[in-house]
Design a protein around this nucleic acid. Structure first.
Lengths: 149, 149
DNA sequence: AATAATCCCAATCAATCTACTAGGGATTAA
DNA sequence: TTAATCCCTAGTAGATTGATTGGGATTATT
């Protein structure tokens, strides 16, 4: 019941871009260093986010990446779904196209999975990158000496 | 972000035992057939549940399994944790002993994982096997012709 | 025009995990 | 004694994870 590193690293990267929103393109290398992620691996994740329209890229020297829209317009849910696919603790309750199950109409166990899926969705859809940036500034103001990425 | 079949089959099996609570020992073969699970595989899951004290066994001919306590005393959370281990979308927020992270005190991403973990816990700890049995009876009363396991 | 910095892309791979299967031993009711 | 059951250990094919490798394309700067 864990997220893979796709979702985890991906959110870290998007959060990093949110912290640096408005500063022009941020290089992959910088993000990877700050977030301590293999840069080649992160490249693949960012490619997915770019194709999904969450991130824009600038090629060539002085290029890099930036959020495609402002941090308050991007939710944690969009990011995680883009990288991990439709959410749900079981195939039969996956968002969008739950795979068919003979018993779906009357499966009591399924009711449980559905409740779990909904509660996860509620959490991740209610948190925007801006919320995370706000948390960052709160933490930063409390302990000046620490590095909060 | 899916549960493995351990948690999914395990809950199905426990639900089956809850439906048949008070009827004496239920054989593994019966459970496996009703729930359409490989019996040898289910055996391993039930062994785990038995060692955790959620299920009692009766050996020999006419033996089988039964819940160790009444369905209202057993939650979905106990069952899933027993089979899947401590819950959490990321190592750093696992229940019980979150693995150490240099950044834990000030990691904004971690705050998100913590919220997900808590919301999942709230759902699974609030549902007992008795709740599932009640759902079963409600469904059964509505559509008499279907087989609700 | 040359160069260095960057993004872009496809293929490969070791390690781990998942969902079993195989094969046999121990216990007990009939 | 026998058949029905639980109990236990080991193996395993296939999928997935989390990368690594090795290049190509684009662009700012010199």
């Amino acid at each position: 019941m864990k997220l893979s590193t796709k979702g985890r690293y991906g959110l870290k990267a998007m959060y990093d871009l949110a912290i640096n929103y408005g500063e022009g393109p941020i290089t992959l290398k910088n993000i990877a260093e700050r977030q301590r992620i293999s840069d080649h691996y992160l490249e693949q994740l960012i490619a997915t986010l770019r194709k999904a329209g969450l991130v824009k890229s600038v090629r060539g020297a002085h290029g890099g990446y930036m959020l495609a829209s402002s941090p308050d317009k991007i939710t944690v849910g969009e990011i995680i779904r883009t990288l991990e696919g439709p959410l749900g603790p079981s195939e039969c309750v996956l968002e969008g196209d739950p795979s068919f199950c003979d018993n779906a109409e009357c499966c009591v166990t399924r009711v449980v999975w559905e409740k779990i899926r909904i509660s996860i969705s509620e959490v991740i859809d209610s948190i925007s990158l801006q919320d995370m940036v706000n948390d960052y500034h709160k933490l930063k103001d409390k302990d000046h000496y620490m590095y909060y990425i």
